[in-house]
């Protein structure tokens, strides 16, 4: 996990401190996944519950407008970051309009 080089005592901070905040983003967890949540942008009502409940976080609110086939215009989209999504399915379960499909990952 992660690709930071293994370095010696001369180069590491004292006392085991980690000085780069939030650097776990350099260590993707997407390969933990067996099932993959896929948001159907057509069905999605942008309630943001998937974003709220995601434990990673691996669901992002993106400033990307979306117009559905029925003509409804959304100012933003909700997308899954597959680099970190562990495929727990909480978003799938909690989606009130069943807009998230849960499909087996094919690698």
């Amino acid at each position: 996990m992660g690709d930071k080089p293994i370095i010696g005592w001369k180069s590491i901070p004292l006392g085991g401190s980690i000085t780069e905040p939030g650097n776990s983003i350099q260590r993707p967890t997407g390969d933990w996944r067996v099932f993959k949540p896929v948001i159907n942008q057509e069905k999605c009502i942008r309630c943001l519950l998937c974003w709220i409940y995601c434990p990673e976080p691996s669901i992002h609110i993106i400033d990307k407008p979306y117009k559905t086939l029925t003509g409804r215009e959304w100012k933003f989209s909700v997308e899954v970051n597959y680099s970190f999504c562990k495929g727990c399915g909480i978003c799938v379960e909690e989606c009130p309009v069943k807009a998230i499909d849960f499909i087996e990952e094919v690698r």
Binding site: I6, G8, W9, I12, L14, G15, G16, S17, I18, T19, P21
Partner: peptide
Amino acid sequence: KPITMGAVANPDWYYEF
């Protein structure tokens, strides 16, 4: 300047500290 103190050091790191 947020840092993390008291981290976990696995066998790859503990010895050096």
